[in-house]
Amino acid sequence: MKWLKNLWQTLNTPAKYLTLGSISLTAFIMGVVFWGGFNTALEATNTEEFCIGCHSMESKPYQELQKTVHWSNHSGVRATCPDCHVPHSWGRKIARKMEASSDVWGWVFNTVNTSEKFEDKRLEMASREWARFERDDSLACKNCHNYDSMKWDTMSKLAQKQMKRAAEKDQSCVDCHKGIAHILPDMGTARAPQLIAEVGTGPSKFTNEQYYFSALTKPLFFSAKGDVEAGTLNVATKVKILESKENRVKVSISGWRKQIGAGRVIYYDFGINMLTAQLSKEAAKTEGVINGFEEKEDEMTGLKWQRVETTLWTDAEYLITEQQPLWDYARTTFRSSCSVCHTQPDEAHFDANTWPGMFQGMIAFVNMDQDTQALVQKYLQQHSSTFVKKEH
């Protein structure tokens, strides 16, 4: 500790030979050197050459960029990696550099060092970037593309309509232009990572005779250990747990089916085409799988419906204790995604049987994986005029 005491005494001793001016000048020069060195290092890590120095970045996203309009166009203006992925304002730039430390971790542990690993992570990485663009109102895009500078008369009528509406709200560009610089992830078969991050995967233990809700669309099985599928359990469906065995649970599913064909599709309620479960032909014909109760005839269609209950097995994961988190996520997704092209209608604007057709006409213009599509559609049906009576 002696050397530390001596250092402290030296630092606290008034200067005997240096003037205040020389000390100030020295401090100024050292500050300039430090700032220059810091800024030089910052800019060195803010170049395209630095970004593609990582093989996984050069072999995938950089190659994809070269096939887009951001690489080659009639104006000759090229967007580089940092133009889009590093904020231009100094404060946000420093924050982004700190966030990028996780990329170093990924490089060290070869997180995306192969094409297969990269594709497995593509949706996760894209979702993170989309969220950042959304948070910053696509400021990186607007550094080059400014609503006030757009020539509306050179656009098509449809483009004018949509872009002027976006300009009025100063809308984030990636709401409509995902995939403009890189290949879009496979949204069709993804397992809704954002949804699961929001609602969780469910408890590790279950209580028999209690109700749970499916957080994703899940396969149904005939037995606790077999791999023969008996059908599909739809997202946001209420089930009763009857028994637990290792990584599966036996569930009871209630609903209504139409008395046509094998009656494989189970709906939420009488006369309402809201999907609860779809059984295989084999399951529908197997004795004891479906128990039938009273029957009713739909006056509008003339079809006979039957109240039923089916008992099958499913994997224990993605069964959660409350349904409201699913509705909260669906509401937010509907109001953010479906307001891109127009003002979205109120949930109670249509009835439960009208919403599926209306919603299917919308999803072609948004990026939603199949689970999220099914959840949002079910949310709209559940909160439609069939169940919510109000003026609109």
Rank of each mutant, 00 (worst) to 15 (best):
K161D: 09
S59W: 07
K225E: 13
E295T: 15
T111H: 12
T26V: 09
K16A: 13
L25K: 03
A95H: 07
T217M: 04
P356I: 00
T154P: 07
K93V: 05
E295S: 14
T310S: 03
G292W: 01
T276V: 15
R248G: 07
A364S: 15
E64H: 01
F222V: 10
K161T: 06
S89P: 02
W35S: 15
Q66H: 07
D120N: 12
G21C: 09
N110I: 02
C54N: 15
M150S: 08
A215T: 08
N146G: 10
V239Y: 01
Q306P: 05
M187V: 10
R264G: 01
T237P: 04
M150H: 02
E129M: 12
F334N: 01
K161R: 09
W3Q: 13
A284P: 00
T114D: 13
G188H: 03
S385N: 06
F270M: 13
A41Q: 05
L195T: 06
G31Q: 10
N234D: 14
L158R: 11
Q323Y: 01
S337Y: 07
E297L: 05
Q382Y: 08
E229P: 03
F50W: 10
K178C: 03
R132F: 11
A374S: 09
S254A: 11
E309T: 08
Q278K: 12
D153L: 09
N113V: 08
F213I: 14
L4Y: 07
A215Y: 00
T47R: 00
K142A: 02
H55A: 14
H88S: 12
S337M: 06
G91T: 14
E49S: 12
A284L: 02
M57K: 02
F109T: 12
V32K: 03
F350E: 00
T354Q: 13
E299S: 13
G357Y: 10
V86G: 01
W71T: 07
S149Y: 03
C176Q: 00
V32T: 14
Q259Y: 02
L303S: 04
K93A: 10
T311C: 05
Q278I: 15
F213K: 06
K378S: 04
F206Q: 11
A167C: 11
E299T: 09
Q278S: 14
F28P: 06
Q9V: 14
E243I: 01
S244F: 01
A224K: 03
W90K: 06
G188Q: 10
R165W: 08
A197E: 15
R257T: 15
W256V: 14
S339E: 06
S127Q: 08
N110C: 08
T276I: 02
K142D: 06
P203K: 04
P14F: 00
L195Q: 05
Y147C: 12
L18A: 11
S204V: 13
M30F: 14
S384C: 04
K285I: 05
A44H: 05
Y329N: 02
L195P: 00
V86C: 03
C84T: 11
W313M: 13
H177Y: 11
